[in-house]
Design a protein around this nucleic acid. Structure first.
Lengths: 368, 368
DNA sequence: CCTAGTGCTGAATCATACC
DNA sequence: TGGTATGATTCAGCACTAG
């Protein structure tokens, strides 16, 4: 283990009370191996939102997420990124997580500050909140940026460890992980969530296994509920948190005091179940395996036409392959995959053959 | 079909030869429904960039040169985004695709130009190129940004069609689609790929089905191999391409001349209830489908009486079917059509059934 | 003990036609 | 133009209860 200049002043494995920029300026330069940052997203939410069942969505409307303008947010971002870069060892690296509200500004600021982007990594949420009003796509992912201190700088990357985490296949830039919920989600005395945006252990586990080594110093300038610290401690890394909110510090302190090194129990979440991926019929149309306008036929010779959105239209019914099949049979349900056939080389082939082709392709690129 | 100001000058379904910014400035403003853009992002590579004064950038690891490179790319991005925004109709929208090299700068520039981000969408490649040296994560995705012309502006979103494409489940912001390869990949005379970054048809299919309607005008200012035009033509949308490279124009021309539109009935897409004509509840009373004095009941057995003017009166409240329902539920809103039931043949039937009868009648009379 | 069913929740930029 | 009234809209996972 190397001795580093000023390292004796590093308050290892503690939570610093204060503003993240001031606190970082007070720490010795070039002393940290990895920074993981979950800054405010600047969501800019306006009114209230209700689910179709009329329950109210508990939005992130905390004061710490409010900025007067993009310019103000940019200034804040530039300032903390600069202070963070000063703290990094020459071979250190940074991860920043965000959503479309802020991540583009953060990414540009990272590049402008001299960091060198190594990957952008997409956290694909297996259970995101739907878009209740049907006005946009389900916002089902967040974006992380992984960057080294400067172009050409060395950085830690445990390729084999991540490959092993991924069942022997090279780890990709998209990670499918569930959001933090259930028992993992910290609650306050009243049973409400203790922090509005607690990150899952599984996410930090993958970050720290992939880009740090045991004994490294990991800093989180927006410590919040302390997931970064907890995972660092479990994995035998040193950690430093900065948090200005007393109630967040309190729950993080309690959490860290109960966390044990190599406590793998919280990781069971990561080992997600693996099942046959669901292939929507529409994907066959998008991929050109079936053309809009093409006719499908059942075993009795009845026909239906494929539409551009992956629905079928028959004589007096339109809907999914299953719905139209059920209607023609007068049955409550129908497996459209085996019911419908298309013509190829003069023969009738069930469309399920096409689904299997897609599955085979996906299997080749499995992972996650 | 509506006549639009300056539309006679729109060169529909052609490829414009020239620089994208100049070409866009020459087109009539507010004339385009959708822009799909796949801008170049190799400008920051060594030797291809010029400083503002047009002197060449060579030492890329020099901090100033790096900044200069980004600045030049930013200026280029701002310029074409501004020209593009001028072309958009007030309810138009834009899609931009990129990778971590450029997408953060593009996203920030979009926001700064006044566009309003609706979603960022991750194209998750099912068969990406692996990272051969094992130095980083497999770069397995690209990012698209979907934005309206300004905050609060309307935009086209075919929610039900995308939901149908995804077999009845709301479409998410992460799309798993294969890269363009095999027969779909255009080859030149020597059998080499004709364009380095040809986008797959499946990607554009989803974009155009989701955010345009038949007859819309779709512009691609970086036309390349012409995937945008080809899919637009297949889907019965008008298209305009801008491309300055003669060899790309040539392969795109050939491609478009061979592309055929799907038949019209296949282009019809699942529509939502919002498209249905509005039926005032009072009309059911006028038509004698419900009698004044008749009692409606909710699922909890609570009753309200129908009045001659189409309002309801309950124990302590009178008003519309929606208002009385919301009051009884203590909810911010209520859909009275599904909330209230009437008795027919001893069974409780939602009044929405009556509305559907009226709509069916209207549809029949309109056809005559 | 297991299974089925209910209820709750998650970083959300989540209306629009009509008068 | 703004104010008002209509009425459309959700997926996965976990905790808990009932049987």
């Amino acid at each position: 283990m190397t001795t580093q200049k000023g390292a004796e002043a590093l308050p290892l494995n503690t939570i610093i009370d204060g503003d993240c920029i001031e606190a970082m300026l007070a720490l010795p330069e070039a002393s940290v191996d990895l920074i993981f940052a979950d800054p405010p997203y600047n969501l800019q939410l306006k009114g209230e939102l209700h689910r179709p069942d009329n329950s109210r969505v508990d939005a992130v409307d905390d004061a710490w997420d409010q900025f007067s303008s993009f310019a103000a947010y940019d200034r804040f971002t530039q300032d903390w990124l600069k202070a963070a870069r000063r703290l990094l060892k020459p071979h250190g690296a940074i991860w920043v997580i965000g959503s479309y509200h802020n991540i583009f500004r953060v990414g540009a600021a990272l590049q402008d500050a001299g960091y060198w982007i190594l990957n952008d990594v997409v956290w694909r949420k297996s259970n995101p909140m739907p878009n209740f009003r049907g006005k946009r796509l389900t916002n089902a992912h967040e974006t992380m940026i992984w960057a080294s201190k400067s172009e050409g700088a060395k950085y830690t990357f445990n390729y084999e460890a991540l490959k092993a985490l991924n069942e022997g296949i090279q780890m990709r830039s998209d990670w499918v992980l569930p959001i933090c919920s259930g028992h993992e989600r910290l609650k306050d005395a009243e049973g409400n969530k203790a922090h509005p945006t607690q990150k899952p252990v599984s996410l930090l586990h993958r970050v720290l296994v992939g880009s740090t080594n045991p004994g490294d110093v990991v800093l989180d300038p927006f410590f919040g509920s302390g997931t970064t610290g907890a995972v660092a401690k479990m994995l035998g890394r040193h950690w430093i948190g900065i948090e200005r909110d007393a109630s967040y510090r309190e729950i993080a302190e309690r959490r860290l005091s109960k966390t044990r090194k190599y406590d793998a129990s919280a990781l069971e979440v990561t080992a997600g179940k693996r099942q046959e991926p669901r292939i929507p019929f529409g994907q066959l149309v998008e991929r050109g395996m079936l053309r809009p306008g093409e006719m499908l036929v059942n075993t009795r010779g009845q026909m239906a036409k494929v539409r551009a959105d992956g629905t079928l239209i028959g004589d007096d019914i339109k809907g999914s392959i299953h719905q139209v099949g059920a209607h023609l049979e007068g049955a409550p349900s129908c497996n459209g995959w085996t019911y419908w056939h298309f013509r190829r080389d003069g023969k009738q082939v069930p469309i399920d053959v096409l689904r299997q082709q897609v599955r085979a392709e996906l299997k080749g690129s499995r992972a996650n």
